[in-house]
């Protein structure tokens, strides 16, 4: 199994480090051809407007969209969640997203950097001590359609969501050495008929 990490901008290097620790071969994805030999994709934290523009200019948007429609598992963190969701509030008018998970997010929903925070989370399917979530100018998930599982919330706002092969977090698992969320995503891709009990 080879995992691609979208490497147009942002914390892609930290996601590759996590894959390394889990002994999953990782690969930077910068152009459409890079998608050919990957089975799943991670979209990292970064600046969603910048990544959206670079997706457009490189022709990667259509190529990724096609793979997602064909069922490729995708994991998006923070900016990655914005790029994967169905509806973006407070975005740029020309900002594009894949509509791969039926949620509505508000960009920078908590405010600016001074409102960035860390918090301990209980996540369905993640065993052991609480997961330490780091939220940087994070989006807020404001609406969740039926069929989307909410695996964790902070102050009532969903922060980990999953729909079929698509999983998002509004925080940054890549900023910690705790790989349990990457493992959760990878396990789900192993077993399309997965259940929370086995995660």
């Amino acid at each position: 199994m080879k995992a691609g990490v979208l490497a147009l901008q942002g914390a892609y290097g930290l996601h590759l480090d996590a894959l390394d620790r889990l002994r999953i071969p990782g690969k930077e994805v910068r152009k459409a051809g890079d998608l050919d030999d990957i089975e799943l994709l991670i979209i990292p934290g970064g600046e969603s407007t910048t990544i959206s523009m670079l997706l457009d200019r490189s022709g990667l948007f259509e190529a990724i969209d096609e793979r997602i429609s064909a069922g490729m598992p995708v994991f998006g963190t923070c900016a990655g969640a914005i790029l994967l969701c169905s509806r973006v509030r407070d975005g740029r008018p020309d900002q594009r997203s894949f509509g791969a998970i039926d949620i509505t997010v508000r960009r920078n929903g908590y405010g600016g950097q001074l409102q960035s925070f860390e918090a301990d989370l209980d996540i369905d399917g993640v065993k052991g001590p609480p997961y330490h979530g780091i939220f940087i100018r994070a989006p807020v998930v404001e609406q969740v359609a039926p069929g989307v599982e909410v695996l964790a919330s902070v102050r009532g706002d969903p922060v980990v969501c999953r729909q079929g092969p698509v999983m998002i977090t509004t925080f940054h698992p890549e900023l910690t050495d705790d790989d349990r969320l990457h493992q959760l995503f990878l396990r789900q891709t192993d077993d399309p008929g997965r259940s929370l009990a086995t995660a």
């Binding site: 490497a7 147009l8 901008q9 942002g10 914390a11 892609y12 290097g13 930290l14 934290g45 970064g46 600046e47 910048t50 923070c78 900016a79 950097q113 001074l114 409102q115 960035s116 925070f117 860390e118 780091i134 939220f135 940087i136 100018r137 940054h172 890549e174 900023l175």
Partner: peptide, 17 residues
Amino acid sequence: TGTFTVKRGLAEMLKGG
């Protein structure tokens, strides 16, 4: 809020930009 982790976190998100 205001921890070193979230301060450095934003710098990490600006990488490659």
